[in-house]
Nucleic acid binder design. Structure first.
Lengths: 221, 221
DNA sequence: ACCTGAACACCGTTCAAGT
DNA sequence: ACCTGAACACCGTTCAAGT
């Protein structure tokens, strides 16, 4: 967590927090979270695994820094005050978070598995809470709305990235669902099967987001 | 995934899928997901690690079976038709899912990391979709509502169990939040800090659930 | 049929020693 | 100051061999 030092004494340092972070994100995109090991990362950096621990105390710290970097700029999606009403601004924040997580392979898994308190993460939270407070929501309501929107978004994106994981064109369980459902059990799943196996994840996400925003409108009233 | 065979030939079998599963859930509760290794589980069963692979082809399969077992009985929370209106019945299903995940250490992480197509998981889905279809929702709406409620519930419980993880009485970042927020950045987080650092996770969950249900009411109209 | 023993190919992390 | 080399204490998984 601590930068090695300030003056350029000794050798010029082939490594740095920034280069390590960038390479880690590249390796994540190429190989996925399960293949992102300290040894492989060190390899990609042309260094031995032990050297990484001068820049990140643990692998968890590295993953946390990756999550923090992933959500850079997401807070800006709220736009300036007056650019749309509160519900449009919250919707933009939620969509920007989902998009940021989708931008990296296993992005949601990395984000959900860490707990960043960096400026990008806190900035997103402050932005969303700010939009709601300025719209007249109470402090407690704004805080709880943040959790609702963030937890839904992360939960959704986790599922979305899991469904498209290996080389599966179709979500893995479309076939399993068909089988199980056609046996006669689960009549309601059978009826809703087209929507359940739809790969239009944006539509699923927008539906849930709309529920939350409509619900917030009802709270405000 | 395949049961070793039917007739009791040879030795009487110290292991079984059921005993392995039960011991795995006990070990999960005692030691947590990170300490749940095939070797430790084998130890708890008085057996060598390799022996487990006669009952579960991979560790993933074991985790999937654990997730499936965790949500046993959750579908019943809907109650019989007529026991409350649709929104109460959906609320009971969501609460039962959260409770089932909270019942095991790292329960949400196990559930989120797997993709069961067993009767408990499918039964829950069928139950929730059924409640909504019987209430007059369209098949597509019912399916998307299932995803919204399930993703929110899993996302919330993931956060809830992460916040209370090690021996932290207080959520880990209450201190970090205080510091970051008092520096003057994040004015909105500062104002909402009491609610943000509240450990009343049931209140947070109920707030989000209410948003979804109010939103569904608006869709129905 | 069921399990052991031993191996294979890895992990995250630490730390004396080199440069 | 920065990195190497080598070790420590593990992993999931496979499979011939025993009983």
């Amino acid at each position: 967590m601590t930068t090695p030092s300030s003056p350029t004494r000794g050798r010029p340092a082939r490594l740095s927090q920034d280069r390590t972070l960038q390479t880690a994100l590249d390796l994540l995109d190429e190989a996925g979270l399960d293949a992102l090991t300290m040894r492989r990362l060190a390899d990609a950096l042309g260094v031995q695994a032990g050297a990484l621990y001068r820049y990140f105390a643990t692998k968890q710290d590295l993953l946390t820094a990756m999550a923090e970097r992933m959500v850079g700029g997401v807070a800006d999606a709220a736009g300036p005050r007056g650019d749309g009403d509160w519900s449009q601004r919250v919707a933009r924040l939620a969509r920007a978070l989902r998009t940021a997580l989708l931008a990296h392979r296993d992005g949601a898994r990395v984000f959900a598995g860490t707990h960043s308190t960096g400026p990008n993460t806190l900035g997103f939270a402050d932005s969303l809470v700010g939009v709601l407070r300025e719209a007249g929501f109470g402090d407690g309501e704004a805080a709880r709305a943040l959790y609702s929107v963030a937890n839904f978004t992360v939960g959704h994106t986790l599922e979305e990235q899991a469904a498209l994981r290996p080389g599966n064109e179709e979500p893995t369980d479309a076939g399993v669902l068909h089988e199980a459902v056609m046996a006669g059990t689960y009549p309601h799943l059978a009826a809703a099967l087209p929507a359940l196996t739809s790969t239009d994840f944006t539509a699923h996400f927008e539906f849930g987001l709309r529920l939350l925003l409509d619900g917030l409108r009802a709270v405000q009233r």
